[in-house]
């Protein structure tokens, strides 16, 4: 079989298919429809989901910001673009996205699906994607979602792709929601303040971090509101302005935010830093695999099989890697 090019001829006449650009189409040709293949970005989270089978061909998504429409608060960007580059371009118009800036690419950030440290204020990564174009296991360009800020037409393929680790489609291009950069933003820290008391007094904090003794808070917004938030915090204890958040250990836990008072201290080992109100905990120790009930594991198998029947996308890697009860999800049947 040979790779089929983007959107044509099947997509003729549909609005979605009409917009597939040459770079994306060329990448679809490169991905083709034969042999094990995986997309590679900056390898910042490369080990997630398990080791790729040997012989897997690596392909890099096309790069470049296609179109930023500040007045629509959207940006169309190719997946190989570094997030930092995207954000530099958005910043020129006073905007940003919810994607984390950790040295990776747009496609990598989305395939991994981990949110920014300021997710409390900016929202999770999964809410940032309005439309996704990906190359399917048989080398076609598939468009999911819609070109506008609001859309419920059909099934939500963008959310399915976010966090899928490249196992059901290779993300080529996305339309992202952008946000205005707030007028003022500052990091504050305090020793001994109760982070939940801080959460209580702050209206819309961008982040509250806690390591069991110290609290860091990121406050953003209108200057008057930031000043008011600072004085509200001041009533809880002494706060100091700092350059940024503390250095974070590399492992990432996902816990219900209601369980952060006790679980990190009990389970995450020394040096943990929790995102209060969110539930992500940064720690040196890795989170034990989370069990997956049989019915959920079966759904995963059917999704993987439906989108990649031959198991050619990122073989060896699974979104349920190591999860008790999951059984094999990746790979073909």
């Amino acid at each position: 079989m040979t790779g089929r090019s983007a959107g044509a001829p099947g997509s003729a006449g549909s609005v979605a298919g009409a917009g597939v650009d040459r770079e994306v189409a060329a990448w679809a040709e490169e991905v083709g429809s034969d042999g094990p293949v995986a997309a590679v970005g900056s390898r910042t989270r490369w080990g997630l989901g398990g080791r790729l089978a040997s012989g897997t061909r690596l392909v890099s998504a096309p790069v470049g910001v296609v179109e930023h429409r500040p007045e629509e608060m959207t940006v169309r960007v190719r997946a190989g673009t570094p997030v930092a580059e995207l954000h530099a371009e958005l910043a020129a118009s006073g905007q940003r996205s919810a994607l984390p800036e950790r040295g990776g690419t747009v496609g990598g950030a989305l395939a991994v699906g981990e949110s920014d440290l300021c997710a409390l204020g900016r929202g999770p990564v999964r809410d940032a994607v309005l439309q996704v174009r990906y190359v399917s296991a048989d080398g076609r360009v598939v468009t999911g979602g819609g070109p506008t800020v609001k859309n419920v037409s059909g099934y939500d393929l963008p959310r399915l792709l976010v966090g899928s680790l490249g196992t059901i489609g290779l993300i080529a291009e996305v339309l992202l929601r952008t946000q205005p950069v707030p007028a003022v933003g500052t990091w504050l820290t305090s020793l001994g303040v109760d982070p939940w008391a801080a959460r209580e007094v702050l209206y819309r904090p961008a982040a509250i971090l806690w390591d069991g003794t110290s609290v860091w808070a990121r406050i953003e917004g209108h200057p008057d509101d930031v000043a008011a938030e600072r004085s509200a915090l001041g009533r809880l204890g002494r706060w100091e302005v700092v350059e940024g958040p503390p250095p974070l250990p590399v492992e990432r836990w996902s816990l219900p935010p209601g369980e952060l008072r006790t679980r990190p201290a009990a389970e995450c080992g020394p040096g943990w830093i929790a995102e209060v109100g969110v539930g992500v905990v940064h720690a040196a120790r890795s989170q034990p695999p989370r069990p997956v009930p049989a019915a959920v594991a079966e759904l995963h198998r059917r999704v993987k099989h439906g989108f990649d029947p031959a198991g050619r996308l990122a073989p060896g890697r699974s979104v349920l890697a190591g999860a008790p009860g999951a059984g094999p999800v990746g790979g073909g049947r």
Binding site: R126, R159, S164, I168, P256, E275, G279, R290
Partner: peptide, 16 residues
């Protein structure tokens, strides 16, 4: 209830 549940976002797929 945790922010980054394991696996595909089947919740996101189900909604809508």
């Amino acid at each position: 209830l945790d922010p980054e549940p394991v696996g595909y976002d089947l919740r996101g797929a189900f909604v809508g």
